[in-house]
Design a protein around this nucleic acid. Structure first.
Lengths: 187, 187
DNA sequence: GCAAAAGTTAACAGATCGGTACACTTTGAA
DNA sequence: TTCAAAGTGTACCGATCTGTTAACTTTTGC
């Protein structure tokens, strides 16, 4: 199995799953949209679930890499990095292909807490939380874990609001709320 | 058509959709779980989509009624009402049957912004936003709309975190963040 | 008590689901 | 050049999907 074909499949499947959802995307649609034959798909992945898990793994890597890189480009100090994370989110929200958070959607479609897909979605959120906990520590927060929970909570809320609400600017609102939190947690 | 049978169907279908998801719930499963014959279902609703819309309508009524009633029981002043909304959410999170927000899930399974189900999910969020905008006005906030957006954003974030994160207390974290916001918006 | 309304069971369409089987072609390295 | 690995197309499997049909029973209002 040449690894590039497999990666190509996962990368294209990711796009379709993100755009159309997991249950709503059948394997036959993936054959058409990815250009990879069904036989080949089932050589690489024994089940649709395995393919979804691989797509989520790739999404997790891609998103965190982009998110943290963008944050580092925009700010240097830990406190500023927390704030500009909302500017990065805003850029994401304004993309044409923006369709909300893939892991919130995965958790919504596979609700059983023991389901591998739900578990993997939760792991992604935990990784983000761990990152911002470290940043909050560097920033000298009184209670870094709590501050990080609150920042992540604001991020989740901004994403959901960006999907379901119009006529408002959730990224900006969340950023302003974060400013308040930082002032209290650091002051 | 006796209205109570129809209501019974919608009410039971709501439970199944909430527990198992929309795409994952077939009409045959609904026949078994609701005890209503398939023929009768399709007399009341021409399509599954119409049934989902009716279930979401009921959920919207039930949830807002419960939420606002619980808030009014716990606090009298507008500012306090905003704060105790997070205590009400916490009670919800601790229910055995808690499975996240039905409207976030509906928006996640039906992503097209023009899709009737997505539209209806967005309307629910807008109604919540309108309510808290009015409360923020009563509380004398400088920018009631913005404060309400932020409060709702914290609520959404708390719900998502309650679903996907463990070992943390999103309702409490969100409440503390809301305290900060209120101090700034009212001070 | 009787007709109409509302309900039931059960079988059935036609499409799609995840997944497999088989025969064939392309690719890459020895 | 050759040969195995990897990929393709297509037909197919049984199950399940949304939705329909027909014959029958229960409930309800008058």
């Amino acid at each position: 199995m040449r690894p590039n074909k497999r990666d190509e499949l996962v990368s294209k499947a990711l796009k379709v799953f993100y755009r159309d959802g997991f249950h709503a995307t059948g394997m036959d649609k993936l054959v058409v949209e990815t250009g990879v034959s069904k036989t080949s798909m089932y050589k690489h992945f024994r089940t649709k679930e395995e393919l979804i898990l691989a797509a989520l793994r790739l999404r997790d890597e891609n998103f965190r890499e982009w998110f943290f890189k963008r944050i580092n480009e925009m700010a240097e100090t830990p406190a500023e990095q927390i704030l500009v994370s909302f500017d990065a989110l805003k850029e994401w929200f304004e993309e044409d292909e923006f369709r909300g958070c893939m892991f919130i959607k995965a958790g919504a479609e596979f609700q059983d807490r023991d389901h591998p897909i739900h578990v993997q979605a939760a792991e992604h959120k935990q990784l983000l939380l761990d990152h911002f906990t470290a940043v909050a520590e560097q920033a000298g927060a009184r209670d870094p874990q709590k501050l990080a929970c609150q920042i992540v909570l604001l991020q989740e809320g901004a994403i959901v609001s960006a999907v379901l609400l119009q006529n408002c600017d959730p990224a900006q609102d969340a950023k302003d709320a974060a400013k308040n939190l930082l002032a209290t947690a650091l002051g």
